[in-house]
Design a protein around this nucleic acid. Structure first.
Lengths: 188, 188
DNA sequence: CCTTATTAGTAGCGAGTCGAAACTATTGCA
DNA sequence: TGCAATAGTTTCGACTCGCTACTAATAAGG
């Protein structure tokens, strides 16, 4: 009487997990959206910290992202920097106060931490596959790390991005980029 | 140079998956919360369809659940029934229109459907473990099916709930119950 | 009995999400 | 030079969400 794993079951588990995390989480003064935006900014490289990039990452609109970022800026967790080359664009950097807030793990993170490593690895790869498929369907960007990007090139000093034509430090190469394109395509 | 699967990575994937689904999803006129509530009501047994049960399941407050249910009732997707035994309590049943709405799968469900069965099974069991641990921490209920409950008893006519002392049809035993307590505890 | 919790559900408040549309400023293109 | 595309913001309306205060019904204890 083994039911084949129900699609709805998985959908439901993901939904409940997110809700449970959201109910418990509220990292300090932040709601889930604000936390997700802050967490993204802390991991994105300097070319990927504009409102439109945050909107892309969070799968929302620029308008909504703009509001969320303004809320974070009001709390001094991020600071805006206007670009010189393109006077339209803005970059939001995480302040020390923001980084501090990101340090303590949420209850969900603690629970994930307790998973056996091989279970965690398998879970991560399944979820990654789902996310990539969803992204592929909606034409969204993958936002991976530069070192897994097809535009990334390893040099003797560190790395180099062929697309933006800029040198990348090892720290840079471990950050998320909005131009990221996986080096290996989905069907190998 | 294999990074051990990062806790934050998994947290982030779950979050992104939910956001992608939420952005795409919007089943008809429903937002994710309303859809989750409707989906729950369709799967819950007749003892588990009150606002407080929905609140428990969605890990929110009774106030919020009440509003969400009122919104669904305004759209004639659920109908309220007042109890005779306890004049305080209300039960919301899904209407034919509500059931119809639940039929077409969301884009996330389609993507999950495409997973190889063994991957889906492993994913489901990992997620289930995470959800159960989170629930255990916050003292929440598991909302499983009667047939996996420690109060459930198999009889010749179908099943029986020792807790509520009521007979259960096979269909009943496959629904979610707010009194559900797993037959096997977490540490066997 | 009668008083006093306790429980079930609701209303209202304030902050915030979210999509959509309208709007400014800047840049790019032809 | 002009027009379209782009970056970001603002405003609107519907809704979520936690919170507090509230009503009504039930349960418990004297």
């Amino acid at each position: 009487m083994f039911a084949p794993t129900d699609t709805q079951t998985i959908r439901d588990l993901i939904d409940r997990l997110t809700r449970l995390a959201a109910a418990e989480e509220w990292n300090g003064p932040l709601n889930p959206s604000q936390f997700a935006a802050l967490s993204y900014l802390a991991r994105a490289n300097r070319f990927s910290r504009a409102p439109s990039h945050v909107a892309d990452f969070l799968a929302t609109t620029r308008g909504t992202a703009s509001q969320t970022l303004k809320a974070l800026a009001r709390k001094d967790l991020i600071a805006e920097t206007r670009s010189d080359e393109d006077k339209r664009s803005i970059r939001y950097d995480v302040t020390p106060a923001g980084l501090e807030l990101l340090e303590d793990p949420s209850s969900l993170e603690k629970v994930i931490d307790a998973l056996p490593p091989e279970v965690a690895a398998s879970l991560a790869s399944s979820l990654k596959a789902l996310v990539l498929t969803m992204l592929h369907q909606r034409g969204g960007r993958s936002f991976g790390m530069c070192r897994t990007c097809c535009h990334h090139e390893v040099t003797e000093t560190g790395g180099h991005c062929r697309l933006l034509n800029v040198p990348l430090s090892p720290a840079d190469a471990a950050q998320l980029c909005h131009e990221h394109t996986p080096a290996e395509s989905l069907q190998p």
